[in-house]
């Protein structure tokens, strides 16, 4: 298992490096001079030149790349244009809010999606199964910002059950969780559908397998067969799917954070784009990439922990 984890970690480092390279190329290829964009139209040439030197833009491209690359690996993502604060600090300040949002979204999707998919598979062909199928497609099809707006209108504006904006009082966990309910639902509801469908399909496949017939031939209780013998296998593709899905949840987080006026990396990037604060944009994107790769790594490690065949293939 340790061997597997180390190899997977090495792969993760390689993926982040490639992502950094692509990110650097993108920044380099974006038209316009970052210094003039940052300083605005009324800046003098001397001011622009000074900022360019400060940002290292006068250096040859490979030096710039090396500075960016080595800086990024040591945690130096540059400074915010206006306040001069380190970008990493700015991003890390917002990160917990987004991570909480993603965690909430995953909780919704797993807590509802897995039992729903399982239940549909066991009652295959029943009315309940068909209803689950239709509802899954429906929630997958509705974009997260639409869910966010409707959730806001129904539960906050009309029913007044849940708060509409913000992330809750700092240091007050209960209040923060209450504030998390609707935004995380907006992020995770589509995934309830994906996961229910995925679990249903793989459960049906696993229940047909000959080892399930063996388990039945030994008279094992149906509950043990469903949850210990079948679901343990059926869940594996779902975990991998969820690892990839975190990328999509990160992008729905942007909408959820804007609609619910929550702090977070999505809101940060949105504001930074509006104010042309490019170091923050790149820094936030890089941090998000790392988070995505790490969570994917976690998903793969969970699959490795659950499936001995994966473990020994590394």
């Amino acid at each position: 298992m340790l061997n597997y984890a180390v190899k997977r970690l090495g792969l993760a480092v390689a993926i982040v490096s490639v992502a950094m390279f692509l990110l650097f190329c993108m920044i380099y290829l974006v038209p316009g001079d970052p210094a003039s964009v940052a300083l605005g139209p009324r800046a003098t040439d001397a001011m622009k030149e000074a900022l360019r030197v400060k940002m290292g833009l006068d250096q040859p491209i490979w030096v710039q790349f090396w500075n960016f690359f080595s800086g990024a690996w040591t945690g130096d993502l540059g400074q915010e244009v206006l306040s001069g604060r380190p970008v990493l600090d700015v991003v890390l300040e917002q990160l917990p809010f987004t991570l909480a949002l993603i965690a909430g979204g995953i909780t919704w999707s797993v807590a509802i999606g897995i039992p729903l998919g399982c239940w549909a598979a066991i009652n295959r062909g029943s009315f309940a199964d068909r209803l689950v199928g239709i509802l899954s497609v429906a929630v997958i099809a509705v974009p997260s910002f639409v869910i966010a707006i409707y959730a806001l209108l129904i539960f906050s504006v009309s029913l007044r059950w849940l708060p509409a904006i913000g992330a809750g009082e700092p240091g007050h966990l209960g209040d923060q969780i209450v504030h998390l309910i609707l935004p995380s639902l907006a992020v995770g509801l589509g995934w309830v559908g994906y996961i229910a469908r995925m679990v249903r399909a793989s459960m049906l496949e696993v229940l047909e397998a000959s080892h399930i017939r063996t388990a039945r031939a030994f008279g094992l209780p149906e509950n043990m067969i469903t949850y210990r013998y079948a679901l343990t296998i059926a869940i594996l593709p779902t975990i991998t799917l969820l690892g990839v899905g975190i990328g999509q949840m990160l992008s729905s987080a942007v909408f959820a954070e804007i609609v619910f006026a929550r702090p977070g990396v999505g809101k940060l990037v949105y504001d930074a784009i509006l104010t042309r604060n490019f170091p923050v944009v790149t820094g936030a994107v890089l941090v998000t990439t790392v988070i995505f790769v790490l969570l994917n790594l976690v998903a793969d490690l969970i699959v490795g922990a659950l499936d001995p065949r994966v473990r020994s293939s590394f």
Binding site: S210, H211, T232, I233, D307, R309
Partner: peptide
Amino acid sequence: MGALNPVLS
């Protein structure tokens, strides 16, 4: 090959 559950010891 298929008679034993692959993920349980």
